[in-house]
């Protein structure tokens, strides 16, 4: 029997990048129930503490090929935590399957969705003085 394409990717890998004042959370893999708690902990750690950078938080989803309701919950909690911390929160570069799940959930109404990283960064950039 052919090996399933995503069978070995059983978790989300997260890498953080800082661009200017923005923090990019580059998420890759499957954000299912099994991976949700770990992803939530990483987002919370990023958003916690006064020492955290004050800039935008952008989750780059270009390599995220699956999100279930357990994963949506983490995005929702992350967006709320960012709002309370006075930081903007956005996602970008959704794969078609993840974009579908966002659309069906109405999440595009409460979380900013950008086509790609450049668009998200442009939106997050501080207004010229």
């Amino acid at each position: 029997m052919p090996r399933a394409r995503r069978g070995r990717r059983a978790q989300v890998n997260v890498r953080l990048e800082t661009l200017g004042t923005s923090t990019l959370v580059v998420a890759a893999g499957r954000l299912d129930f099994a991976a949700a708690a770990d992803f939530q902990a990483q987002l919370e750690a990023l958003l916690a503490g006064a020492a955290a950078a004050p800039g935008a938080v952008i989750v780059d989803c270009a390599a995220l090929d699956y999100v279930s309701s357990a994963g949506l919950r983490v995005f929702l909690l992350g967006a709320r935590a960012a709002q309370r911390a006075g930081r903007s929160f956005a996602v970008c570069a959704l794969t078609p399957a993840v974009a579908d799940v966002f659309a069906l959930s109405g999440f595009g109404k409460v979380i900013a969705v950008h086509a790609d990283r450049a668009a998200a960064l442009a939106h997050a950039a501080p207004r010229p003085a």
Binding site: S69, R73, A79, Q83, G106, V110
Partner: peptide, 14 residues
């Protein structure tokens, strides 16, 4: 699925 960020329930979406 139209509620605002803070009012949106975290369950029931599945």
């Amino acid at each position: 699925v139209a509620a605002g960020l803070e009012q949106r329930p975290v369950g029931g979406l599945g």
